[in-house]
Design a protein around this nucleic acid. Structure first.
Lengths: 152, 152
DNA sequence: GCATATTATTTGCCTTGACAAATATAGCCG
DNA sequence: CGGCTATATTTGTCAAGGCAAATAATATGC
């Protein structure tokens, strides 16, 4: 009897799945946008450049935290981006354990282009939402994020 | 002069980043929930079990598509889940190229628990949204997903 | 001031997933 | 039927990320 009551899943996806799908599409779209301009970067690297451009020079571990990446993984990404000439590891004045990561001129120039890529993707993603809906989506997501983080 | 005009990023995260953060937290929370019950599964494996439980037996490639996973990766996940006894690869009656993947009794039993894990995570994630806000968030995300997929 | 604890980064190892080539089977057309 | 094409799964290979150990440097307690 109760096996019949198990509906074969109506349309609704769970929030986790849905968000995963949206994220995957955003990543794909952004990488395609970069490739289309001859920029050969992964999404993670895009995030690193973006953070540095927006927040300015910072320590490696700090950067890892803001892009939600493991420190070891960050080291390797920095290797690549430094090798490509987009950023620089500078010694920290007061603390020789830490590195001050900063964009080079080439990195700044790159961000000009990446910013355009991002804008185009966001525009596509949000094209069926009006301004107030966009704001609301943003607000909801932030509330969900806080709810998950402050488990209290 | 114009270096001063660069504001150190106001509060707003871009949609892509924000969604990524939310997803990462959901994955972490769900895996923690499973670990807490002695269930040793990754998020991807959770998705596979969930799909099979909800949609019933299906072909391997079909399963790969619905969980947004590469076919090769799916093969290896199936290896693991089959070895753990949660599912079975059955020959397909009409087409011997294809596999019919189905949950075992142990897999069904597992889903009982996983469903609870999922419910708890969703409840936490959405606890600061009321029913209509949850529905709206869902709707917005689906619209964003469609906007990204139908690039037309 | 020296030993110990702490913090920041790097490195090693392992797992996962993407992509492409290999394999197996089915479908189609002559 | 026999060959060609298409489809489903598997396997090989590689890059990326997580975690833990190693390394380097600072901070603290005695």
């Amino acid at each position: 009897m109760d096996t019949d009551s198990r509906i074969p899943t109506p349309p609704k996806e769970s929030l986790g799945v849905l968000i995963g799908l949206v994220r995957a599409e955003i990543v794909r779209a952004l990488e395609a946008e970069m490739t289309g301009r001859g920029i050969n970067l992964r999404f993670t690297q895009f995030l690193i450049i973006k953070r540095l451009a927006r927040l300015g020079p910072m320590r490696a571990g700090e950067l890892a935290r803001v892009v939600d990446l493991d420190c070891g993984a960050m080291t390797r990404q920095l290797d690549q981006l430094e090798h490509k000439g987009y950023l620089r590891r500078c010694p920290h004045a007061q603390d020789r354990r830490t590195l001050r990561i900063e964009l080079t001129a080439a990195g700044d120039a790159l961000w000009q282009q990446l910013g355009d890529c991002q804008q185009r993707v966001l525009k596509t993603a949000q094209r069926s939402l009006d301004a107030s809906e966009r704001a609301q989506l943003h607000d909801y997501l932030e509330r969900v994020l806080h709810a998950l983080r402050d488990k209290a």
